[in-house]
């Protein structure tokens, strides 16, 4: 019972943070709302018994990725956004499309009788279980993902390096 109450409360916090992210006009407030969403998601994982995933969610997303977001916003000194009423097409097509998407997701989850319910502790929570999954069952996808990340880093370096600094590095060896 307590679990259910906590789960609902943090679910609401999560949705509230996401809505607030869209409504805030200042980028830094939006970024902090996203941190709240990440934190609430971590609590939801914790309540489902996936402690390791919850901890990683906080360390990686809230503690590293979002810090870099905030860092970039601080560095660019981004000001307040102007609020526009949006195009008419967005109003006419966007809201029905979002509703339709939600209906489809809910239907897909509820259509299978046992897919809509996740018991507490049903997710693989113990680090050893996750290690088994990552390093045995999904070893190839795991390693391929690491190569993908490496390529992304190299791409970022190539894009970010200005020509003159590359020239200088070449000259100085």
């Amino acid at each position: 019972m307590l679990h259910l109450i906590l789960f609902s409360v943090f679910g609401l916090v999560c949705v509230g943070g996401a809505v607030n992210l869209l409504l805030q006009r200042h980028p830094i407030n939006s970024a902090l709302s996203l941190v709240v969403v990440m934190g609430a998601l971590a609590v939801e994982f914790l309540l489902l018994g996936a402690e390791f995933v919850a901890a990683i969610q906080v360390i990686v997303y809230a503690g590293a990725v979002m810090v870099l977001f905030v860092f970039v916003i601080m560095l660019l000194n981004a000001g307040e956004e102007e609020r526009t009423s949006g195009s008419r097409v967005a109003w006419l097509l966007g809201i029905p499309a979002v509703l339709a998407g939600m209906v489809i997701v809910c239907w897909a989850l509820l259509a299978r009788s046992n897919a809509g319910v996740a018991a507490i502790g049903a997710l693989p929570g113990h680090p050893a279980d996750i290690a088994q999954l990552l390093f045995h069952q999904f070893l190839l996808p795991f390693e391929v993902t690491s190569v993908l990340v490496l390529i992304a880093i190299m791409g970022a370096v190539v894009l970010a390096a200005r020509p003159e600094s590359v020239e200088r590095t070449k000259r100085e060896g």
Binding site: I28, A55, A62, G63, V67, V70, I73
Partner: peptide, 23 residues
């Protein structure tokens, strides 16, 4: 049973206090 990760997670959030005060 994830005590060490909890400490690391909370300390990794500590940067917000410093970063946001600076901004």
């Amino acid at each position: 049973n994830i005590g060490l990760l909890v400490v690391l997670g909370i300390t990794s959030l500590g940067v917000y206090g410093v970063a946001l005060s600076g901004w």
